[in-house]
Design a protein around this nucleic acid. Sequence first.
DNA 1: CTGAAAGCGCTTACAG
DNA 2: CTGAAAGCGCTTACAG
Lengths: 335, 335
Amino acid sequence: MNPTIKDVARQAQVSIATVSRVLNNLTGYSEETKVKVLQVIKEMGYQPNAIARGLINKRTQTLAVIFPCVSNSFSAEVLHGIEEVAHRHQHSVIVCNTSDDGKRTLNYLQVLREKQVDGIIFASEVLQDSYYEALQAMKVPVVLIATETDKPHIPYVKVNDKQASYDAVNYLITHGHRHIAMMGGTKDDLVAGVPRVEGYKQALADHHLPYREEWIVHADFQFDSGCTAMEQLLTRPRDYTAIFAASDEMAVAIMTVAAKHGIRIPGDLSVIGYDNVKLAEMVVPPLTTVHQPLVEMGEMACEKLLTMIQTGETVDNTIALHSIVERKTVSDLRD
Amino acid sequence: MNPTIKDVARQAQVSIATVSRVLNNLTGYSEETKVKVLQVIKEMGYQPNAIARGLINKRTQTLAVIFPCVSNSFSAEVLHGIEEVAHRHQHSVIVCNTSDDGKRTLNYLQVLREKQVDGIIFASEVLQDSYYEALQAMKVPVVLIATETDKPHIPYVKVNDKQASYDAVNYLITHGHRHIAMMGGTKDDLVAGVPRVEGYKQALADHHLPYREEWIVHADFQFDSGCTAMEQLLTRPRDYTAIFAASDEMAVAIMTVAAKHGIRIPGDLSVIGYDNVKLAEMVVPPLTTVHQPLVEMGEMACEKLLTMIQTGETVDNTIALHSIVERKTVSDLRD
DNA sequence: CTGAAAGCGCTTACAG
DNA sequence: CTGAAAGCGCTTACAG
């Protein structure tokens, strides 16, 4: 057994209350006893039991983050940011992988409640009513990342998806493209699916450019379904010069499938992505894309959560700033 | 305040002992009281406090996994596997990101001890003596993943790095390559650095093929340093037809830099990677590489850890099976 | 400056 | 079948 506070109290010949005081840097003991207690602690290799502490303090110093999928680079970068500031503030982070499964998500929520986590970060998924209710019942601060809600007291950190998409398409337009296709994300995803398509349509409309149903294709943001979607698009007449993809993985899928069909990028077809994950710089040619500051978004979300935990008050949303990162997949068609 | 066991006991007009019994499916209560208690629990929305439980049971149902970097796809895939089996066995997982910083690692170890985690998975890093001592002091089961140690009672899950590298180089050789360069990982990394270079040298020696100092270059497994290393290699005479890279990210770096220099792959230069992360299928041309079953390795490590926790006994190492995944970056030079 | 005692929310002998 | 009581390892009034 590891030594407990009782053991050091006995050894130092003081009460456990005194040991607790020096442990927590409170007042109420002489320099002499402090020295003695500290020495005994060192000798015995004593470390406080955070579980016992948590029971009294009602703080576990533990946060949880819920992802639909932990193994894509989007999640990985966000997680990196979260973990970084959590650690800086002496908090641990539990990761949950829902696999987009509602039951599983609810199950996680219950476990997190039982484990008394101090706060939850909910990422990249629509906040269902059932989740919201469970979260309400937990009485724990929640912040959203790369998603949003109209429910009160739940701040979010995200980019303006519609605007970012608008800017991406606008970038293509200012480079002379007038016939632009799109690979959207999950069709009825109200957060990352719909708004990005809206931004696309808006940009076309504002420039009086044609919009065609056959130019749009949908996938689930990932590479594999992106390949399928691209094959599907290539089934139709290729009367566009550029494609806007609602994620980098899908953009890369476009590049891969294009290569298979002998379509050169950007010579025959321009591509612009969305996310700016590391992958975007690793492909050849490197992908022009919309940058989302993922690591920073993770950091900001975690900071928000921490201040909500500390103050007990709700915090404002923040719209993270996106930008276009110019690389080599968009050709300039202007003369 | 959320209701406690006391609240339901009062409401159901039984003792807390009885509530605890039905909660834990023990024996010792009538069907009648069971029904009543369960109903009250439901009405009040009562959920047990895992912290209080943990204090008594000395089990927190929480595991920790320590990575040098959580945001690369290697870690992401391993984490995915770990989280999956942990969740299946009702355990949560805390992630720690050491950034390869020894002090920070030791700090994590202390936190994990205070938090009374039931077990630790230590990934992709050499187990320093100082870590080992801290781990010993915690008296908690540990399993290693993608790394190894000669310390007792610490099983590992990994591929045979030397053999896997040997096989990669042998693959190049059987495809007619006789002058083969290598981009190694961190030079004095005893786990993933040295053995992979040894496998490379051994394969050359066994086939009486030339080995040259100038053909070897080192990076840190990641893309960025891989680019630098490739630039450095291109500074020297290009009298080889293939390169073996000790990670997929470095292989992709080779491809990127090669493209910049107008070197065609696999026409002018063949490349074989190591890991088989998702990235390998996403690049153009898709990367031929050594497959490590990362998700499965995460799963196996987690299962090992769980059985060590349950039985209190050490478990055997497992050498995960690697294989060569043939894609499009190695040209066949045989006539 | 210091300690005895109550209590956090549970589980588990023990007694009936 | 059921409850009173001790105890897990701490913190925190309270009293001195």
